[in-house]
């Protein structure tokens, strides 16, 4: 049911006229939400998503996608995080942050958190631009075709879809 709901949400975003920038930005921020482990950091990014005028649906879709992808990326994230947390030139900086107020609550000193933030930063721009381009391309070439699909009609139909999805 969650998959169906997600597909419906994605179709809704794609079929409506929401700004591609909002959708792309939402997806880019959703990458962080999906990748970075730990409740504290997730709360921070979720708060940002709610506060900023970004598309929540695209953010959740990216979160789901990168959440699953993150499982595969964790070993790499751990290595990257561990490397940068122990990089001699950065240790004083990390030590400063570690001794600062509030910041230690983010668990930035965890190798997975640090590594996934790095990966999030790396993926941010590609995800943003790729999403934006994909939306434009979809709306130009695919939107009219997809809307005619029976599945699309079924999923996007107001009451009917609501009944089926329940």
């Amino acid at each position: 049911m969650f998959i169906a709901k997600l597909i419906k949400e994605i179709l809704k975003i794609l079929q409506t006229d929401i700004s591609p920038n909002q959708i792309a930005f939402g997806a880019a921020v959703g990458v962080f939400l999906g990748l970075v482990p730990g409740i504290a950091m997730k709360c921070v990014f979720f708060f940002l998503i709610l506060l900023l005028r970004v598309n929540i649906g695209s953010a959740l879709a990216a979160c789901t996608l990168f959440g699953v992808l993150g499982l595969a990326l964790d070993p790499a994230a751990d290595k990257i995080g561990f490397f940068i947390l122990n990089a001699d030139s950065l240790v004083p900086f990390w030590t400063y942050l570690y001794n600062a107020e509030i910041i230690p609550l983010t668990n930035f000193n965890n190798s997975l958190v640090a590594g996934n933030i790095v990966l999030g930063i790396i993926f941010f721009a590609p995800v943003f631009f790729a999403s934006k381009k994909f939306i434009s391309y979809y709306r130009t070439h695919w939107r009219d075709k997809v809307i005619k699909w029976r599945v699309t009609k079924l999923l996007t139909a107001g009451i009917l879809s609501h009944t089926i999805l329940k």
């Binding site: 990390w94 030590t95 001794n99 965890n110 190798s111 997975l112």
Partner: peptide
């Protein structure tokens, strides 16, 4: 279980 915590010396902290 998930990742590793790197603990830095607390110097001027509270």
């Amino acid at each position: 279980m998930k990742g590793r915590d790197v603990i830095y010396p607390l110097k001027r902290g509270l």
